[in-house]
Design a protein around this nucleic acid. Structure first.
Lengths: 113, 113
DNA sequence: CAGTATCCTATGGGATACTG
DNA sequence: CAGTATCCCATAGGATACTG
């Protein structure tokens, strides 16, 4: 059985999720990040949901999880090549929102800085 | 209160919905379409859901609903300028899915024909 | 033909607490 | 620090039937 209706659906399912794009964008800018860092930067995301979305992004091959396997837990996330290839699209999505949506309706600007 | 988290969120909320992108793409290709036509072309969409998504797209200003107000109900939908400006992004989303997702997982190919 | 109303289910995501 | 488990709620979307 096919998992996706079409190419839109495939792409959308991978980036759909309240925080997924923000996570990808954050990692694109910083290069890599730890769980706690991401949670601090992306305000209001719940612990459970961040963990969920990170796992989905990892499963879909958009980010890579590197476990340092030290005594004190230390995990770093960074974009895969596939994830990086998505950035131009995210830019386009951000720019479109920036130019076509009333700024008063937008809580925190992310693109075009 | 802001309605959207950021520009991503704004754009995503407008195109999110199981059939919204397909509707937009369909209208982009055909120029305009009636309710029944859309339902026939977009297989498997339920009557109620199609009506819902059309109304949301209209509310968000992406499509325009033209009621001919004849005795026999006749309504045509077509893209607004805002909706048209979204097409390049949809193309990018489709192309990305086409090149980065296993074709066996995709039910019906829509782009790159 | 186009649209609305009702009912139902699956899922996403928040709050919170627990584990190693 | 990173992750999992439980509980709970709001929403999306399907099936179906009804209206003008």
């Amino acid at each position: 059985m096919a998992k996706y209706l079409n190419e839109f659906d495939a792409t959308m399912q991978m980036i759909q999720g309240k925080w997924k794009i923000i996570i990808l964008y954050e990692l694109a800018e910083t290069g890599q990040g730890r769980f706690g860092e991401l949670q601090r930067h992306i305000q209001n995301v719940s612990h459970k949901t961040l963990a969920n979305q990170l796992r989905e992004l990892e499963t879909d091959g958009l980010i890579i999880r590197h476990d340092f396997k030290t005594a004190e837990p230390h995990v770093e996330y960074h974009l895969s090549e596939n994830g990086k290839s998505l950035i131009p699209i995210l830019d386009a999505i951000c720019t479109w929102g920036d130019t076509h949506v009333d700024h008063n309706l937008i809580e925190r600007s992310l693109c075009d800085e």
